Simulated scan of single mutants.
Amino acid sequence: MLKKDFWYDLPKELIAQEPADPRDSARMMVLDRKSSKIEHAVFHDLPRYLEKGDLLVVNNSKVLPARLLGTKVPTGAVCELLLLRQVKGDTWECLARPGKRMQVGTKVSFGDGTLTAVVDKTLPDGNKFVTFTYDTETLYEKLDEFGKMPLPPYITKQLEDQSQYQTVYAKELGSAAAPTAGLHFTPELMDTLRAGGVNIAEVTLHVGLGTFRPVSEDDIEDHQMHSEWYSVSQETADLINATRAAGHRVIAVGTTSCRTLEAVWARYGKIIPCSGNTDIFIYPGVELHAIDGLITNFHLPESTLIMLISAFYGYEKTMAAYRVAVEERYRFFSFGDAMLIR
């Protein structure tokens, strides 16, 4: 299939600039895989569409406030680093701006100067290996002090509260972007689901900045996915396998949870406790084995995410649902409305 097959027209005003308040007041499009029926609901209606014994699998990765604005030493020129992944110790792979002016040996100071960085190496794609020095026990403390959330480029409004870009169950630091399908959950909604007999299991997949990178090849099969680290615990593997054995549904919350489970299945032929890196690319023609349902947001045209949805729900039905979403004025992308495919 071609990249252009996944294009749809989206009015700019439908790109959500802030999350729904309260979170579970976002709208939810409900898609039935068997009947192709489309329903329009609100996210706090989710318990109506789930059954006792169903399992939600959420991604508990926590977003790093990884965007650092600083100045070059000694010139004072303004620059920016975005931490992508920890290489070793205090050395991180970073996206640097302006990249061409931050050559090896460049020193950058942040805030009051108690956090500094030196560029060690420029990678072929222009990213940098950077080593940080700080006066606290961990770098994370300095990120909490000086860092900002690395919001997607289509969100131009500044956050009033950085927690708006974290799920309520986030705990494992390491993502450069939020697993946004989970942003709709509130503690109260999760309590309601548990009280109704719906189980909740956690996986970890640290979302990389590559999630925002566009597909550049015309033929989507030529696209190379970015690699991301994931982990599945013994407890989660046991819950998933017990749910399937009992004839209940495993529903992934977000494409990251879906990719985690499908990566494990692709490697081992079943769900087992494990961790590693995955660059799995799911698009129409790739069969999904590990999930029975999916909660997700509305994704960018021509993105790998809308391709994943098309693999699970069907290409024609997915593109038709997106046209309905535009007509019905749903809110799109990271802070937008939700879709439940069951």
Score class of each variant (00 low, 15 high):
E327G: 02
P150Q: 10
P152C: 05
I155M: 06
A96K: 00
C258D: 08
P74Q: 03
R267Y: 08
T156S: 11
S303M: 12
M225T: 10
V63W: 01
Y268N: 12
F6A: 04
A246D: 14
Y8G: 02
L123W: 00
V30Y: 09
A195Q: 15
F333S: 04
G147T: 06
V87Q: 10
E235Q: 14
T260A: 07
N241C: 13
V250T: 05
E235T: 11
P22E: 04
S233Y: 02
S25I: 09
L261S: 09
G208M: 11
F333V: 00
E137V: 08
T260P: 10
L50P: 07
R194D: 01
T122E: 14
H40P: 05
K317A: 15
T131R: 14
K142V: 04
P65I: 01
K142S: 13
D54W: 00
L308W: 15
A177N: 07
D218G: 11
G197Q: 09
E39K: 15
D292M: 12
R33Q: 10
V253A: 01
F146E: 14
S257T: 10
F6R: 07
Y230E: 08
F43P: 05
A246I: 07
T138V: 12
L173M: 15
V250M: 11
G285F: 12
G285E: 06
W92K: 03
T106G: 00
A117P: 05
S310D: 12
L143A: 05
M28V: 03
Y268M: 07
A66L: 03
W92F: 13
K62D: 06
E18N: 09
A242D: 15
R33E: 05
I155A: 05
T256P: 07
L193H: 00
L10Y: 10
H248M: 06
K34H: 14
T71S: 15
